[in-house]
Design a protein around this nucleic acid. Sequence first.
RNA 1: GGCUCCAUAGUUCAACUGAAUAGAAUAUCAGAUUUCGGCUCUGAGGGUUGCAGGUUUGAAUCCUGCUGGAGUCACCA
Length: 591
Amino acid sequence: MNIQNVIDTNVKKGFLALYDTELPTVEFQATRKEFDGDVTVVVFPMLRFKKGNPVQIGEDLGGYLVANVKEIKDFNVVKGFLNLVISDEFYLNFFQSIYKETHFGIATLHTDEKAVMVEYSSPNTNKPLHLGHVRNNLLGFSVAEIIKATGKKVYKTQIINDRGIHICKSMLAWQKFGNGETPISTGLKGDKLVGNYYVKFDQEYKKEIARLIADGKNEEDAKKEAPILLEAQEMLRKWEAGDAATVALWKEMNGWVYDGFEATYSNMGVNFDTLYYESDTYLLGKDVVTQGLEKGVFYRKEDNSVWCDLTAEGLDEKIVLRSDGTAVYMTQDIGTAIQRVKDYTDVGGMVYTVGNEQDYHFQVLFLILKKLGFDWAKQLHHLSYGMVDLPSGKMKSREGTVVDADDLIDEMTATAKEISEELGKLEGYSESEKEELYKIIGLGALKYFVLKVDPKKRILFDPKSSVDFQGNTGPFIQYTYARIQSIIRKANFDSSSMVTIELHQKEKELLKQLVVFPETIQQAATNYSPAIIANYTYDLVKEFNSFYQNVSILGEENKDKKIFRVQLSNKVAQTIKIAFSLLGIQVPERM
RNA sequence: GGCUCCAUAGUUCAACUGAAUAGAAUAUCAGAUUUCGGCUCUGAGGGUUGCAGGUUUGAAUCCUGCUGGAGUCACCA
């Protein structure tokens, strides 16, 4: 019995009664502040079905609605806009119906629907996580939570690129120059330690190239013949042959990296339900390619390489198997996708959180999977997002302009600490509670900053000034939440019974905002956009602050009104908390 | 060069996917509240929505062509 449905069906009914004409759709929107009313029906589109003066049609329809629909109390027409005034009773009934709900807006699990697998993060194991991964992780995690909130089962996953020549490079450098260093012996996080040796390899490699060139080699040959590179290639062959010592070293060093990543993930507050490793999946696609060849989806060239012709779909030809029979990136992704559906038979679709530089890759991947005839291939989505740029330009690891994820979180936490100490509302908090709080605020600022922007747009991140704590920011919203909690702590009277009062305009505005929360989640899910949730929450908070400024809550003399305002504040706080949980942001009781 | 994406107040972002005078925040200026947390609230100035056409009762939004930026077009991942 939501108000949209009521209006939709009754406008159609009214149109039929008045003009004897069927109206397929009704367009409406929230009424702008400067006009009277709550919901506005747009008359213009109706002119296609019934020629006439839009104002007159508006008047006729308005009259019909007020006479026939109890929720609609009054109306006015401005140009082609029919503004409807919704009754207090409707909003009060709505409030009573949601007041006891602890998870307002969150749908219960629809057991009849297929599950969705959301992939995100998928880092290179040679490099510690940086700002780009932060955006990826926050987006992936949040979209997974949002989809879950619409009632679907969700599996969070990632594919770990744990194999290949790049891994051998850091292994080799560690063997040669590491002197047996471990994360424990150095006190370094494992991913940082391994990352250092990856850099070390590159330095040595460059030195050798320079030496070879000095000895008279040309640059191209020098790059190919540098001894350290040859050694790395030899190591890869050993690894692929299953050489025990090489595999043991590989396992040990990867273990360090995973521990390091795990620390960063847990710090960031993201997690996974299931993991896939490239070393397990890189061969998976081959069988599929064989089957695809039989079906005629792929074809073999003279040199024995296998291709997929996508020119009919407006794309190019794409290689899926090298002439030596080995798998390429695409082969691996085909195999992994199929494996996932085998492992989790309830999965009916997947979301890939990967940067927009891979738009083309995923277009091709999805198309190939469709051609192979998998019914779930229609339910694949590439959650493509823009890069994070620094004022100095692109992040480049070699130039040291990478913003490290761990460092970033530490910095944000430190800033939060400075600000909280100035405010000084934390008497009675222990040191560890304070530290916990600083992290909630610091991370809240970072996450909100990243998530409030439409995913497909680029973000310019200025570490110095970008992350603010005022205005449209995470801490501003957290602050409002904390302030409501303060009011509730002080409201030491029984406020559990439901009351009927005449609504203040500000109360009505707040209720209007609450009404649209469930559909906002739905919209965020269909658009794969946490930004929609972020902006909704901000609007709700602004509306609350305006209410807070305009009416007195605890100072109200009318007992019923006082009760209602406490209840309403409480519901707003709960809604903030739920909305923020969809973004992976926590809210503090005090700050 | 082909294809894809992006361009909105000084700045950071919106605009419910085609509707009313394009909205917030921030910064600036002017005020309120001095009593539920002054990290609050109200107001002002600030825009030819990159440019030029087109479709439409109506365009930031759709189409075409430009300009500027990014990405991609590997038997790399």
